[in-house]
């Protein structure tokens, strides 16, 4: 079998394979639900109502989508410029660490200064964390996939050290946990009494801003050019190295914001389970969104809905919530294949 590139794909060819990919995802999940002894229709119904069925469920889904929007944007920005940032997990924690350092009482600032300060510091921390691998890539040609991926482990161990040492909550009864943020450093809820916090709105604004940067600004044009064809970009006088470094700062900054939003909006303190792999799931989100910043919002909602819905479904019918992981994994695999099929046709030798 061989792949033959398609010069100008028809609209049908651009829509049908991704639609089939989603269909295949649900087929796989349906089969697994059957094996686990559930009625697939009931399972999907419960996932749906579990994710969107009540005000509580909906807000839970939006809250869960928030960090994924940030990390998804971080990945989408980087991948579009062919900077393979696998380190959003560490960048998220770097943002969270800075938020905790500044927000647990060290500074006596009012909320309207405290929150921007924590947010910017978190962005800076995430940005600087990715700047290192980006410099290694541009200066010495070190593969950033390896450096960013492995740095995740180093940084998580560093956070673990911080939570056992300097940042440990003296009132925490020995748990590896930071002190709680002061109320000035907490992102308020959008509507009083409902759990949804302003981090979600911030994530939507971030998505909009990234879209504007991509399409309207000089930097966006440069990032796209470098990503699509660095050789032609360099020949045309685009400062490729500088563009890659700026991309790294933007990407790392977005991931850092995820950490800020989670600590300040949701958890109120830093623990080692702040992120159940949002940095990695962000890759899935970005890929499902075809690296489009507004698509990232939709993809993050989809992923969050599956996780939240599957949790509630498994409580109801006893089909394990692992089905969410499988759905996500198969959605990604089928989608990658589908994207291939929008660009190539398969020929049999």
């Amino acid at each position: 079998m061989r792949l033959e590139p398609i010069e100008a794909p028809s609209p049908a060819r651009r829509i049908v394979p991704p639609a089939l990919a989603m269909a295949a995802t649900f087929l796989v999940a349906a089969a697994l639900a059957l094996i686990a002894g559930g009625n697939p229709f009931a399972v999907f119904g419960l996932i749906l109502t579990g994710a969107f069925g009540s005000k509580f469920a909906l807000l839970e889904t939006l809250n869960s989508a928030t960090p994924l929007i940030f990390t998804g944007l971080a990945i989408a920005v980087a991948f579009r410029a062919k900077l393979w940032n696998i380190g959003a997990e560490a960048q998220l924690y770097a943002g969270a660490v800075l938020t905790v350092i500044l927000g647990t009482g060290a500074l006596g600032l009012p909320s309207y200064l405290m929150l921007p300060l924590c947010g910017l510091a978190a962005m800076l921390a995430g940005a600087l964390l990715l700047l290192g691998p980006a410099l290694l890539k541009t200066r010495l040609g070190v593969d950033e996939v390896v450096t960013t991926l492995l740095f995740n482990f180093i940084f998580l161990l560093f956070v673990s050290y911080l939570l056992e040492g300097p940042l440990k909550d003296p009132m925490g009864m020995g748990w590896p946990k930071s002190a709680r943020l002061t109320s000035e450093a907490r992102l308020p809820r959008i509507v009083e009494g409902l759990r949804l916090h302003w981090g979600f709105a911030l994530a939507l604004v971030a998505a909009l801003l990234v879209w504007v940067i991509n399409t309207r600004t000089t930097l966006g044009y440069e990032m796209r050019a470098v990503g699509q064809n660095a050789e032609a970009a360099g020949f045309a006088g685009i400062p490729v190295t500088r563009v890659i470094l700026k991309t790294a700062l933007l990407s790392g900054g977005l991931a850092g914001l995820a950490g800020f939003s989670e600590v300040s909006g949701l958890k109120g303190a830093l623990t080692l389970d702040l992120s159940p792999g949002f940095g990695y799931t962000g890759i899935v989100v970005a890929m499902l969104a075809l690296l489009h910043p507004l698509g990232v919002v939709l993809a993050a909602l989809f992923v969050a809905a599956i996780f939240v819905g599957a949790d509630s479904m498994s409580r109801a019918v006893g089909v394990p919530s692992y089905i969410a992981d499988i759905m996500l994994a198969s959605a990604l695999l089928f989608m990658v294949l589908a994207i291939l099929l929008t660009k190539f046709r398969v020929r049999r030798d």
């Binding site: 000089t218 044009y221 699509q228 064809n229 050789e231 032609a232 020949f235 006088g237 685009i238």
Partner: peptide
């Protein structure tokens, strides 16, 4: 490989060398 970016449209390719001086103001295209 060097002269053009295949998936960019004609406009994006036409300004590849002069975008900074002629088609961008304060960072906006």
């Amino acid at each position: 490989k060097t002269g053009t970016i295949a998936d960019f449209d004609l406009t994006e390719n036409a300004i590849l060398e002069t975008y900074a001086s002629r088609f961008s103001r304060r960072g906006w295209m």
